[in-house]
Design a protein around this nucleic acid. Structure first.
Lengths: 258, 258
DNA sequence: ACTTCGCGATTTGTCGGAGTAATTCTCCAT
DNA sequence: ATGGAGAATTACTCCGACAAATCGCGAAGT
């Protein structure tokens, strides 16, 4: 039991290595590391749907963690629909249709490896459906406080460019204020998930050239339409913004082949 | 420590009672019961954001379950963003903005108690944004297999009325085929969450009078537009369908006051 | 008097062993 | 061949113990 079995797969060894790097016996979120590792392995397709989490691939012993930590990690995966457990059958990876793709952690795992072009496209299609709707609702409801917040965020965006951290923060605040103005908790939750994914795509953007176009005028158009209470115009303006973002990230992903 | 403390709250007693009904020591999904109970208590607002899960309100001892089962249940809640744990601070209920409202279990907990009118409205606003878009994408892509599945499902809907179980199954298959035709995994995941919530609203519908209007013609309109490849018409037809469903459930919730 | 360092208390996190329940498979009898 | 009883495998639960992290308090030093 001391010597490594030669039959252990390479990825299992890497797993053990990686988890062994985290100080053993430390009470610090070991289950989080296990969940992250298994989640990435499942979402990336290394462990295919229907496969069992067992033996040398994924197990409490193979990962050198206690059953408690391993079980709690599996609970996290189960809560996100990635796996399911049955007695005598083990814990099996569920079909992709059962995964909760909008969960922030699942999105993070999906973006941890190579970016899947199709997945990014699907995500932007969802954005194209939802975010113009949010802008439209915000324009129809338009609360004074959130409108003021959007105004100040817009001013901050103008001052600091989007390349700086302050500029990106202002951009986030603009969209958050817009979201608050829509006053829809479900849309807020959905937008939070989408936003976490968008933040993950920015890493590819930053890898490419600088932003090819100034997004400020589009934001101004959205703000003006919302302030005017013109829902249709707000939705249209936001749609332009989404298409621009989609174009930029696509170009970045194309250019990131270097 | 044997006698019940008089300071124990009534809801804690009910909790203990409820969980005591599940056969103790049984290996069958006790953590699921704990997660369900805590999830309902949090989503319903009985345990407010910022409150600690401790003492007589919610605890391993108060619930008469082992620390392992309780911890795994808390992991489920953590995975859905309802709570977060820190040493020396305990596990606290997170603000509502952090909840993953689109998680099927969270939706189930939200609908387990009294239906929140505002929440239902928010959900239908999301449906009104997403489902017409799905219909539009399905019309633009239109795959032959899914189109055939929609056709047969439509025929089944015509034969069995929507009041029967077979009719509802046909309705589900119609929408699933439409979703497959859209060929967007993210939208499939989102629609699955929404669909689980819609199924939960039907309980209120069934409590009220029978369906006031025949939904078949609207489905036919959607199908025809998709088959013709007319995205705009498909979206418009689906929007009518959603508004009809919204109207029906609102009426049912109004009439369910009996 | 203010700062800083360290100790203790509280809570979560991890570990490993033992036993129970449920499901599936196998094998035997009919 | 078919049906049911038993065995095997697996997840689920309980338990007791210890480690780690964080916060608060107090003492010591500046």
């Amino acid at each position: 039991m001391d010597a490594k079995k030669p039959g252990a797969s390479a990825r299992s060894d890497a797993m053990v290595q990686r988890l062994a790097d985290t100080p053993r016996g430390s009470g610090r979120r070991l289950r989080g590391a296990v969940a992250h590792y298994l989640g990435c392995a499942i979402v990336s397709g290394e462990i295919e749907p229907g496969a069992r989490l067992t033996g040398e691939i994924a197990n409490s012993e193979a990962l050198n963690v206690s059953r408690s930590a391993y079980r709690e990690a599996v609970q996290v995966l189960t809560a996100k629909g990635l796996v399911a457990s049955k007695p005598k059958d083990g814990t099996r990876v569920m079909p992709r249709s059962n995964w909760n793709l909008l969960d922030p952690l699942v999105l993070a795992w999906a973006f941890s490896g190579e970016p899947d072009r199709r997945f990014v496209k699907d995500l932007f299609e969802l954005r194209a459906l939802v975010e113009p709707g949010i802008a439209r609702l915000a324009a129809e409801r338009r609360s004074k406080g959130d409108l003021a917040a959007m105004k100040t965020a817009l001013a901050a965006m103008r001052q600091h460019t989007l390349a700086s951290e302050a500029g990106r923060t202002a951009d986030r605040e603009f969209h958050e204020a817009l979201l608050r103005a829509a006053s829809n908790e479900v849309l807020m939750s959905l937008a939070a998930s989408i936003g976490s994914a968008v933040n993950l795509t920015t890493q590819y953007k930053q890898r490419a050239r600088a932003l090819p176009r100034d997004p400020i005028p589009d934001h101004v158009r959205v703000f003006d339409a919302v302030a005017a209470g013109d829902g249709a115009a707000a939705g249209a303006a936001m749609q332009v913004l989404i298409e621009l973002a989609h174009h930029d990230t696509s170009a970045a992903m194309d250019g990131a082949h270097d």
